[in-house]
Design a protein around this nucleic acid. Sequence first.
DNA 1: AACATTGGATAAATCATACTTTTGATCCCC
DNA 2: GGGGATCAAAAGTATGATTTATCCAATGTT
Lengths: 232, 232
Amino acid sequence: MGDDNRPGLHGSVLDQLGTLVVSGEYAPGQVLRIEQLEARFGVSRTVVREAIRVLESMGMVSSRRRVGVTVSVRAAWNLFDPRIIRWRLDSGERESLLRSLGELRRGVEPVAAALAATHATPEQCGELTGAVMRMAVHGKSGDLEAYLAADIDFHRTLLEASGNEMLGALTTVVAEVLAGRTHHHLMPVLPEPVAIRWHAEVAQAVQAGDPVEAERAMRDIVEEATRAMVGD
Amino acid sequence: MGDDNRPGLHGSVLDQLGTLVVSGEYAPGQVLRIEQLEARFGVSRTVVREAIRVLESMGMVSSRRRVGVTVSVRAAWNLFDPRIIRWRLDSGERESLLRSLGELRRGVEPVAAALAATHATPEQCGELTGAVMRMAVHGKSGDLEAYLAADIDFHRTLLEASGNEMLGALTTVVAEVLAGRTHHHLMPVLPEPVAIRWHAEVAQAVQAGDPVEAERAMRDIVEEATRAMVGD
DNA sequence: AACATTGGATAAATCATACTTTTGATCCCC
DNA sequence: GGGGATCAAAAGTATGATTTATCCAATGTT
């Protein structure tokens, strides 16, 4: 699966440090000294410094002379950084984060659907209907993984078809939500047939160039998803 | 203004490099060699490498042995990184980015308003109504800067009151949109009285704990804003 | 001729170390 | 007790040495 662990010591140290901070083992306000981190991870100063720099650019720590590296409060973090999202998903707050991301999705995807209705290329329309068909097939056969892949394809294509780069950049977030939902059994064993129908309606409305209908159908999808999670 | 240029060579080099990449002077696919960057900026390897690491963590470049530092295609960038947003706002694509961010806002803020209606604390309700009052005062007097400050306060408070960290993290984005709009004269000289009324309706609905009404009123606000920009 | 193997060159990655600068803390004098 | 000089700690910067991955081409094999 999406393991973008770059080879390289610094990436490994970054990953470990991020996990430690997210988990709270390194709590906000705590100061780390570079020398201590060198020892802890058994790497050179260069490597530690580069990892710290990246962490600093994500707002998770701040480095000051004569003081050391201070872990920042959560309010300062760039919560949209994909690494932070992954670290949080891998930690104890997985469930609450999925809820937050689901609410974000609820706002963003209907708008993306409306925009896609006026911006989608014929190729993208084809991808959308193709994804819906695959969802229908695998939904009936009960192959949840294949269903998930088709679902992700659908939403990725739609976000890209919105013609809005910022919405397109949320593809990874949406994919994480969908994957997290199935992998943590927050979904029925057999997908709701009505969900598939709504996806088909979105695809059709996009193809027909009807923003209002596309937005409505997409809103049905995400609100059903919200209900399903709340009801868990 | 919000100049978080950390003192330090590496931050300065990072800023220059980011600007060069965003502007297209360093185009996707182009390879940079570290030695060459040392010379260009007159700094040591250490500094260049740390800047490159941060840029890499933002997805703007990728560094590979034996080949060098390659500028990545835009699709790989973390478009939600505050630095990238600032660099793009400072570049020629300012206007198109503001449009994209406005569309994002259109999706996110109504959801935030609905959530705020069930999560806002009394203090946050007070801040909201206070911000609306300041908007009314400065809107009538024509003090656009003070009006902007109150407007930003309103939306920041609302996003925080949603109780959703991800939505709260979008405060900077919304603030940039609002500021960019006034500073680039995409707004009428005197704010629409109806806009102020809608803000008041949101504040009232939030205080009353009415998510549906809060969402509707907020939708009025952001859709009016979209219309105003499109009509420019 | 097409393909696999090997070897060398190259540039980043890592390590080690020395030097600089900032800044919190202490001490001293008034 | 307050204010300024001084000290020292820790990050910041610079640089040379060494390691490692990998592209490229030359060579050899089928």
